[in-house]
Computed example of a mutant assay.
Amino acid sequence: MLLNGNDDLMRRLSDDLMDGYDEELEMEIEDRGLDDGADPQAAAQRKEARRVYFRELFRLQAELVKLQDWVVSTGHKLVVVFEGRDAAGKGGVIKRITQRLNPRVCRVVALPAPNDRERTQWYFQRYVTHLPAGGEIVLFDRSWYNRAGVERVMGFCDDEQLESFFRTVPEFEKMLVHSGIQLVKYWFSISDEEQEARFLGRIHDPLKQWKLSPMDLESRRRWELYTKAKEEMLARTNIPESPWWVVPADDKKTARLNCIHHLLSLIPYHEVERPGITLPERIRHEGYRRHQVPGEIYVPQIY
């Protein structure tokens, strides 16, 4: 075991479990005494850290709403790529970014493995169809960089295909940028020890076991190969038009805040004034009568 002692492991697993709750529910439950019996000073410090986290998260999410309005108003096109090892926290930050946004404006693309037809296409073709039009934000939960990572390490592409990818991806991304798309690329970086803890958390949490695939488990065994693949990927695809940004992600909450704050800093958005909204009076007709809805089609009131 890489972890030092069962207490440390249990703390990590507990933190990971609590992180799965929605923010408001998490704060409410934890503040009602889940730290009872723990060291009072440590419990107070953790509670204060949570308050700071939520305060900053809600503030940043309010800025994301302003960004969304600006994107729609200006017709800006934004693509954000999230890459990293399994369990690095990509999904967590994507969830917090989209949580308060309009899904018609900001959408997530998480493509499965290519089918037989897609394998015969130009490699980037299936990603191109998901690129944004004016006034849209697209978040890629993994992207065309699968070729430099999982496909390379698991042997799903040969050396010639890999080398072709490295030669063409800078040109592909330059084309996107020159077409008016702002492209931002994040690599979420976690330690060997932290990934082990998160995998164990998924194994022992029935609500998260679906996140573990045989491929994820095999990626754990091939940690060093993934490291080499990541290092070459960053070195060969870090171009001025679309540089890589590395997010230290051993602490999930600070990683989320840092990533969202940084993303906002890259975009010259400003608050767009909205017209005032007045709720109209409902039109009432003297002869209108509601028809009775059959009781058997109502959802049972269990709660």
Results as ranks from 00 to 15, higher is better:
209 Q>A: 12
299 V>N: 03
212 L>F: 12
28 E>Q: 11
194 E>Q: 07
232 E>Q: 13
253 K>S: 11
148 A>P: 00
159 D>C: 01
81 V>K: 08
83 E>K: 01
62 A>S: 09
268 P>V: 02
168 T>A: 14
218 E>I: 08
236 R>S: 12
59 R>G: 06
49 A>K: 05
303 Y>P: 06
21 Y>V: 10
85 R>D: 12
293 V>D: 06
109 V>M: 13
209 Q>L: 14
235 A>F: 04
140 F>Y: 09
173 E>C: 08
2 L>M: 07
178 H>R: 13
227 T>E: 11
223 W>F: 13
214 P>W: 06
300 P>L: 13
64 L>T: 06
161 Q>S: 10
287 G>A: 07
63 E>Y: 06
232 E>W: 04
120 T>D: 14
258 N>Q: 14
70 W>D: 02
38 A>W: 04
10 M>S: 10
81 V>N: 10
58 F>S: 08
45 Q>L: 14
149 G>C: 02
55 R>S: 14
205 D>Q: 02
73 S>T: 11
282 R>G: 07
246 V>Q: 09
205 D>F: 01
213 S>K: 13
30 E>N: 08
162 L>E: 05
210 W>D: 06
237 T>E: 11
77 K>Q: 15
192 D>S: 06
52 V>W: 08
281 E>R: 10
23 E>G: 12
49 A>Q: 12
272 V>T: 02
217 L>F: 10
120 T>Y: 08
134 G>T: 03
50 R>C: 04
28 E>D: 13
251 D>Y: 01
173 E>W: 09
214 P>L: 03
45 Q>K: 09
41 Q>I: 14
16 D>F: 15
19 D>H: 11
213 S>T: 15
162 L>M: 07
141 D>I: 01
191 S>Q: 10
109 V>H: 05
185 K>E: 13
246 V>A: 02
167 R>A: 15
46 R>L: 14
266 L>E: 14
245 W>N: 10
51 R>V: 01
82 F>E: 02
297 I>Q: 05
97 I>C: 07
63 E>N: 09
8 D>W: 00
278 T>C: 01
204 H>C: 08
134 G>D: 07
80 V>D: 06
280 P>K: 02
66 K>L: 11
60 L>S: 06
254 T>A: 08
149 G>W: 00
177 V>Q: 00
165 F>H: 00
247 V>G: 04
167 R>K: 14
215 M>Q: 08
18 M>A: 12
149 G>S: 03
241 E>M: 14
219 S>Q: 01
130 H>L: 05
87 A>H: 00
218 E>C: 01
249 A>R: 04
121 Q>H: 15
70 W>T: 08
281 E>A: 11
207 L>E: 15
108 V>F: 12
262 H>F: 09
198 R>P: 09
91 G>N: 04
